[in-house]
């Protein structure tokens, strides 16, 4: 008596085996205790996996996704990055420059509008430019989906497996 291979049993357990194969496995199972036990084991594993908890997202999660999708002003993104500590070294330098510039504006220059623009504006602009060059924040600058997408569609089993 030839036992079906494991792939056959596994597909049968998933009700994904083609009709002829399924008929063979079904007939075999009635006379083979070992395969019946293997099938029971596959099904028990599936039930145990299905029973693992999958909690809902925390409240406000979807709103935070939507808020994240709206382009935020550059200064808000910068502040967010500084707070979360995700700044890369170059960005950190730019941020530090920016913070220093802001401090200059508010402590030494006072509220006079044209005085405010004189020197710090350059610092601000260059810090911001450096920041933009080094810190990929905008969605357009995030990594593309992993290259294995194309590899996988070309070859299937050639996919990382």
């Amino acid at each position: 008596m030839t036992c079906p291979n494991s792939e056959s049993l596994s597909a049968f357990a998933d009700r994904e085996a083609p009709a002829e194969e399924a008929a063979f496995v079904r007939a075999h199972l009635s006379g083979c205790a070992a395969c019946a036990r293997r099938l029971r084991s596959i099904e028990a594993a599936r039930r145990a996996l299905a029973a693992l908890p999958a909690p809902d997202a925390p409240p406000g999660f979807v709103d935070s996704l939507l808020a994240g999708a709206r382009p935020a002003p550059w200064w808000a993104r910068l502040l967010g990055e500084v707070r979360s500590g995700f700044l890369q070294p170059a960005g950190a330098v730019a941020a530090a420059g920016l913070a220093a510039a802001a401090l200059l504006v508010f402590t030494h220059r006072g509220p006079a509008p044209d005085a405010e623009l004189e020197v710090p504006a350059e610092v601000l602009v260059s810090a911001h430019e450096r920041f933009l060059r080094t810190m990929p924040l905008a969605p357009a600058e995030t990594e593309p989906p992993a290259p294995d997408l194309t590899l996988a569609s070309a070859g299937g089993e050639g996919d990382v497996f």
């Binding site: 996704l65 994240g68 999708a69 969605p139 357009a140 600058e141 995030t142 990594e143 593309p144 989906p145």
Partner: peptide, 8 residues
């Protein structure tokens, strides 16, 4: 994932 979705 949603960020990448938007970007691509």
């Amino acid at each position: 994932a949603f960020h990448r979705l938007l970007a691509h």
